[in-house]
Structures are given as structure tokens and as C-alpha cells.
Design a protein around this nucleic acid. Structure first.
Lengths: 343, 343
DNA sequence: GTGAAAGCGCTAACAC
DNA sequence: GTGTTAGCGCTTTCAC
């Protein structure tokens, strides 16, 4: 359990100064040294099993080679692929990630943001941001590189990468309409999350394009993106508007909840009612009847956000784009039934 | 984007020495200072928005307040709950976790172990260890606190927390036997993982207790804990031993794969064949017909491992227990059919 | 009760 | 080409 060797140990071992050792071990500066001494130093380093101390490096360089990744909850299956996407670009560059779960708790988020800053993270990828989010805005204002993922914050110029919500909703609405559905309800997400709002707005806009008047639209808003809320809202929709033939849900978990409620209450999907989701989370294909949904490339989204963040950290060339919109696609399974349009 | 304030800034502001500021801000040592000056310093700190620099702290104290968490792959749904369990004890204690994915790649694991050590982690929780795993053994030998989770490594005295594999296999075997099954095949996990081996051994041992001779046992071993391997092995079992009435799988993913293969090849579960899993991963309840499996408390396992690790780091009282075995329970769903025993 | 000084392991001016 | 020196922000002896 002997202490890890330091530059000083190598210096003593080889009889040179620590700064020489430091240079010899830095690929950038190696060139300014004699070949002979470099070899000697590297051999000594290998022999002693030297590993650089990144903490000392961080303190000196004011760069921790660490980024913070804020997510609502890693047990929500759409996040692990995002995390892997981030890792796929960060790790090869030598960055480590500290992943924290906010649980959608803004107080907790504030504390975690502070913790990350105390730990000197070089930047933050935030996948749990609210449309209005003073904590992260303040951090960004102080000069910390931040990029938000999946959601955007409205009060600041923080770069974000989102999916093409509008296109996704349009695809799925078209799909329902093509299958004869005219009485399409929207099970909306929370209004304080940008995805919730964006998808709702897209729904209204597409409905308008199809000539449905806004006040005829039945929309029920979930408080959280959770199955339980899906059940509650499905119940609401069914009782308020029993003639509904399809429920377009703002995400998969809401759809799963809605499907469960409908199945238990004499409206099995797809026979009695068609239901659609959004996200295409893992394992959805194994759950009957197979939710038709909008596929989002979570891994790519993570990787894209990571690339942006690195650009901001390196602060190299011009500004990074404020907005990055990733393409989505329709994933047809079996939760949408073809029916005769009733008009 | 002004630089974050340091102790020096507060010292200048209040006209005292930095060491005094340091003491005033340390709850432990605050007592040795005048009440008056402590108040003045704390006010100045608040006014400037001082946040301690944990990197400097780490360098000085040789303690990073960071632990490494090695998992095979965070997108495997059994791991997120473990991560949250670890976090639930680590975060309140001020520890952050760096989570890394090994992808079961031993080379990658070695690199990651080194990276974690360079970053000065105070300990490692390893959920992806092989039965023989020189990398982590070497790290532990050098004095780094390590605890393994779900699996154990055989060549060293590294504390581990595992689930009661033996009891789990026994429960599920009993359950199958109670339902009349006598021709029970085992779809085993990889032999180089302790769970794979332990569950296989338990299977053989229970079978022996039931008077089944070892050479009559049909066992097919998967190379990885993945659906694809489950399909392959199910095919093998069905062709080698068509009279099989039940397949006891070493984990849920293998079971899902087996179920899929059987369904597609005229052996729907549970009507033609009964299948069981192990782990009770999330969302299993939504996948028909509902896999009967052994429930593991992943969150608790993570929390337990974290508690052990903290004990080791604090190096306080006596040694931590080498072995911690967590209880498991039977989770009955609908993948096991009651049949007439054929003898 | 408070200040002075050293040092954690490293990098980067600046000398020579 | 290599050594000297200073310093990143903090804690901790040791003085007084």
C-alpha cells in the first residue's frame, strides 16, 4: 500500500529536475528534450508505475477534465442511452462525467449545480431543465459552459439540442388521420417542460391544418411524465369525450399508463381505442400490443450535446449554434387501428 | 465571468489571514475562533458567494470525496436502480460518483480502473467484475478500497455483496416442481461470471436433492447474459431434449430471449413450455405472459455496497465483513403452467 | 485566538 | 536542453 509515485520520485530516480520529468512525459513538449533523457525518464516512469495525478493537474491548469450530467432520473429508461452517447464522445477526449439525478426537484437541482461547480466541472449537460430555470441560467451567466438536451430554457442563450418535436407530432397525427381517426385527443405533458409545451403546440397546429377548430380539441394535461398521470388523464378524456377514437400521448410513459387504464376499463387498445406515444423507449417492442410511437435517437442526442459542450469548453472557433434539432422518425407497431372515418 | 472567489479574497475583504478564514468556515474548528470574527467572515463569504474549491481540498487532504462505480452497461436496466442505491448513501455524505461502463471488455476495464485511480477516487464499487479479475485485484492490493456487487472475485479478499443465488434458484426450482415439472432444463449464464457459476451450481445441487442424477440434467450455457444468447440456447435445449417442460433461466434477459424463440417456434410460453427468470428487472410486469422470476433488491444492494465502501474508506473500526448476502424473493407471474407430472 | 509558513503534485514562466 | 521559481486553493502544523 505504498504511496503512488510522483514526478518527484521519478526525478530523484533519474537525477533530473521535476520540470524536466514533467516535460518528458508531455507529448507536446517532449520534443524540446534530448532523446536520451526522455527515454530514461519514461523507463523510470514505467518501472515505478507512475500515473499522473489529475487532481494536481486540475488545480494547476484550472481544468478538471470533468463534466456534469444532470438528468431527472437514471432509472427512467430513456436516459441511459443518452448517457452512453455523452460518454462516447467525452471519454476518448479524456473527460469523465459526474452524473446526478435531480428527481425533478428544483431545490435538489440547485444544490447539485453548486456541488458540480465546487468540483470544478468544465461544463454541464442538462437534460432535466425547466423552461424557466434560474439555477442553470445563473451558472451559465457566470461563464460555465452549459448545453441543455431534450429541453430548452427560455430565458437565456444556452445552446440546446432537441428533437424535431413538431415533425414528430405531425408524423403521428398524419398516421392517425390516414387510419381514419378524426376524434383525436391529446394527452399532453407538463406545460413547464419544453417538450410538453412544444408537443402540445404542435398538436394544435397540426389539428388546425386539418381544419379542426381549437376549441373542439380535447386536451388533457399530465402533471408529470409518468404512467400514473397517463391513467388519470385517459380516464378524464374518456369521460369527457367518450367518442374519442385515438389518444395521441406526449410520451411513451403516458401512453403506457393510458393503455393500461383503457384496457382495464373496457376500451382495449387498439380495438376500442388507438393510442400513440413519443420517444420509443427501450423494451417498448416487447409490450403488447406494441406502441406506435415517434423514434428519437437518444444516443445521438447525447453525443451531439457532448460535442457542442466540448466546443464551448475549448472556446475555440466561433460560437456554437444556439439550436440543434435532431430528426425523428415514425415507429409503427400495433396500437393504431384502421377505422372508417365518421365524417 | 469573474473568477470564483477564494479564501484569499475573503481574507482580503475581512482583513484577516487566510488560515483564519479557513478555520472560520470549517464547522470543526470554528469553535477556536472569536464569535465576532467568525460572523464577519461568514458574512463576507456569503456576500461574495464563496464556494469551496474541492479540487484544492482534494490535493491537500489526499481525499477526492469521489468514488468510482464500474458497471457493465448502464443501458442494462438492472443497473440504474443500483446506481441510485449507491447515490442514496454517497451523496448525503458528500461523495460524488464517477460511473463508467466496461461493456464486459477487460481491456477497457483496465484502462478505466487506471483513469479512476489517476482521478484519485477514494474507492471503487465494481458490479462488473469477473471471477478472475487481475485489474481490480491489483488496485485493491495497492490499498484502494474496493467492494464488488452482484459478483465476487475469487482470487482476493475483496468484500462483496451478492444476492442469495442459491436460495433464489431453490425457490424457483421448488415452484416449478410444485407445478408438476420434472423435466427442467437450465439455461445457464456464462461460467466466468460468479452469478452464472453460482446459479448453475445451485441448480445442480437442488436437482440432486430432488433425486435427479447430474448426467440426466440438460444444461445449456450462454456466452453472455443477452436475449440473443437466450434464443440460441433455447433452440439448443428444445432440439436436444424435446420433452423439456420448463426452462429455468439464469437471468431475465436470457428468459426473454428463450420466450421469444419458443413463441416463434411453436412452443408458446406458458402453454407449451414454462420459463423462469432471475433478477426481476423493471418493466417485466408489462411483458406478456409475465415472467415468473426471482426478485433482487437492486437499490438495497447498491446502498449496502456503498455503506461498506464508506466504512472501508473511513478505515475506522474493525474490518468490514468479507461477505454480505442479500435476501431474494419469488415473484410469481404467469410464465409457469401447472401440469401433470409425467411420473 | 490568530498569523506565518509549508506543502499537496503539478505546470509554466523565466533564466542560463 | 534543462534548472529555478512561483503558484493553483486549500489545510495544518507551529509560533506567539
Amino acid at each position: 500500500m505504498s504511496r503512488r509515485p510522483t514526478l518527484k520520485d521519478i526525478a530523484r530516480e533519474t537525477g533530473v529536475h521535476v520540470s524536466t520529468v514533467s516535460r518528458a512525459l508531455d507529448p507536446q513538449k517532449r520534443s524540446s528534450l534530448t532523446e536520451e533523457i526522455v527515454v530514461k525518464i519514461r523507463q523510470a516512469a514505467d518501472r515505478l508505475g507512475y500515473r499522473p495525478n489529475r487532481i494536481a493537474f486540475s488545480l494547476r491548469k484550472q481544468k478538471s477534465m470533468t463534466v456534469g450530467v444532470m438528468i431527472p432520473d437514471i432509472t427512467n429508461m430513456i436516459f441511459p442511452p443518452i448517457v452512453r452517447g455523452i460518454e462516447s464522445v467525452m471519454e476518448p477526449l479524456g473527460y469523465a462525467s459526474i452524473i446526478v439525478n435531480t428527481d425533478g426537484d428544483s431545490d435538489r437541482e440547485r444544490r447539485l449545480t453548486e456541488t458540480l461547480q465546487e468540483r470544478g466541472v468544465d461544463g454541464i449537460i442538462h437534460t432535466a431543465v425547466l423552461r424557466s430555470d434560474p439555477n442553470i441560467v445563473e451558472a451559465a451567466r457566470q461563464g460555465l459552459p452549459v448545453v441543455t438536451l431534450n429541453r430548452k430554457v427560455e430565458e437565456a442563450e444556452i445552446p440546446y439540442v432537441i428533437n424535431d418535436e413538431e415533425a414528430g407530432i405531425r408524423m403521428i397525427f398524419d398516421h392517425l388521420h390516414d387510419h381514419g381517426h378524426r376524434r383525436i385527443a391529446h394527452l399532453a405533458g407538463p406545460r413547464d417542460l419544453s417538450t410538453g409545451l412544444l408537443r402540445r403546440e404542435a398538436f394544435c397546429s397540426v389539428a388546425r391544418d386539418y381544419g379542426l377548430s381549437a376549441d373542439a380539441l380535447v386536451i388533457e394535461e399530465a402533471c408529470r411524465f409518468e404512467e400514473e398521470e397517463g391513467r388519470r388523464c385517459a380516464k378524464e378524456i374518456l369521460s369527457r369525450s367518450p367518442e374519442t377514437t385515438a389518444i395521441l400521448c406526449a410520451n411513451d410513459r403516458l401512453a403506457l399508463g393510458a393503455m393500461d387504464y383503457c384496457a382495464r376499463n373496457g376500451h382495449p387498445c387498439p380495438d376500442k381505442i388507438s393510442i400513440t406515444g413519443f420517444n420509443d423507449m427501450p423494451f417498448l417492442d416487447l409490450i403488447p400490443p406494441g406502441l406506435t410511437t415517434v423514434r428519437i435517437e437518444q444516443f445521438d442526442a447525447g453525443a451531439t450535446a457532448a460535442r457542442l459542450l466540448v466546443q464551448m469548453i475549448d472556446g475555440c472557433d466561433g460560437k456554437v449554434p444556439r439550436e440543434t434539432v435532431l430528426p425523428v422518425s415514425l415507429k409503427c407497431r400495433n396500437s393504431v387501428l384502421r377505422i372508417e372515418p365518421d365524417h
